[in-house]
Design a protein around this nucleic acid. Structure first.
Lengths: 208, 208
DNA sequence: TCTAACTTGAACATGTCTGTTCGAGTTAGG
DNA sequence: CCTAACTCGAACAGACATGTTCAAGTTAGA
């Protein structure tokens, strides 16, 4: 049987089906490699991923019964990671614009790895749950935006959902630009937060 | 011979190899359909595109010898269209922020259709020329940004290339949000220009 | 009207991707 | 050290995409 033990992680359930150490290690290697390869090339195949993980193709299928299952796990992991960041950054404390700056500075780099993953998930898993699940994490940012609007530090002329998308989008863009060397890594963080804060502030109204 | 006449357009050369009217019509239909299908699903195949264009698969191959050739034509067309917009919008006239607002309002909708095309071109044509050719049109926006910085209406704390990317990225995002109904079409233009102008203005410095 | 240009479905060769199975070899861990 | 867990290459089946060819039908346009 190529199948080592039941299944790897699914959803937020650790569900630890005592696996051997090497299996555990390989699963990790596979997920890492998959994330890397898929964000570079969204149509990377199982063979390519297995090779990048330094693992046989059969082993890959042993842990993930299908490409879809692999993408699903990857996607869920990505969402969990985002959730963790939002927890750790303590999004509800302090002035909204300062909380946002903390958020941006702490996670724009990580977001890079996950930037193409959303489109892959959309293609493989279908728009069904994907939109909603991704929307759920965006909603947390949206909450922060709304708080900022109440505090008067963000413009109230734009819908919070749009401003949340703006944050997300610009973080992606900065990560990509930095990744391709068009934005120097050390200036990136400062420039990005400046741009985002400006965007959320909106255009200054001419008349009071 | 399934091949009607030489080739369809290539590059900026109209090169009109007298085609019959129906051929001309079909080519147009194919390009339209391809743009539509590919931006919805980047890995759409020739069969899918042909069907969407209401044309036989053989006819499609008659006009475009390969999928790559089709994407290439599509990509070039897209660049040409962008260039035309930049011409028509008269980017070098008036205050920089006003010129930018004209640009955004006139083309954010069109950009929607072309949003996924860049990634398709990257995958099919390779990063080689694609980056440069796309960069060339971005450079024109960058020029406008630089002018705005000189005039003092845009922040000088961020590199012009980054601000140009910001404009491009936010236009994409708005088009997508509007496309999926999360941003009402009538408010979209105003909200988007507000966000972009704010982003280019940057964060207000606390002290003078 | 007459012809060359054009379109078309079917069928084909080729290739790549996905999953699966087999059989034999490693390795973790009690 | 012994066994169950795990890995791996090779080889398979099926699906699907790309191009090509063929032979017969339509249609534009002079």
């Amino acid at each position: 049987m190529p199948s080592p033990t039941p299944d790897p992680v699914r959803r937020r359930a650790p569900d630890p089906p005592r696996r051997r150490a090497d299996a555990e290690r390989n699963i990790e290697a596979i997920l890492d490699a998959a994330l890397r390869r898929l964000s570079r090339n969204p149509s990377a195949g199982m063979t390519e991923i297995a090779k990048a993980a330094g693992v046989g193709r059969v082993t890959l299928y042993g842990h993930f019964p299908s490409r879809e299952a692999l993408v699903e796990t990857l996607f869920q992991r990505s969402l969990d990671a985002a959730d963790d960041v939002l927890d750790v950054v303590d999004i509800d404390t302090g002035a909204a614009d300062e909380a946002l700056e903390r958020l941006v500075r702490s996670s724009w780099r990580v977001l890079d790895r996950h930037r193409t993953l959303l489109s892959v998930a959309l293609e493989v898993l279908g728009p069904g749950g994907v939109r909603d699940r991704h929307g759920a994490v965006l909603a947390r940012v949206e909450g922060l935006v709304r708080r900022g609007q109440d505090e008067g530090v963000f413009t109230a002329d734009a819908p919070p959902a749009w401003l949340a998308t703006t944050v997300y989008t610009l973080m992606h863009a900065a990560a990509q630009e930095a990744d391709e060397g068009r934005l120097s890594a050390d200036r990136a963080a400062g420039v990005l937060t400046g741009t985002i804060l400006g965007a959320l502030r909106g255009p200054e109204p001419e008349e009071p």
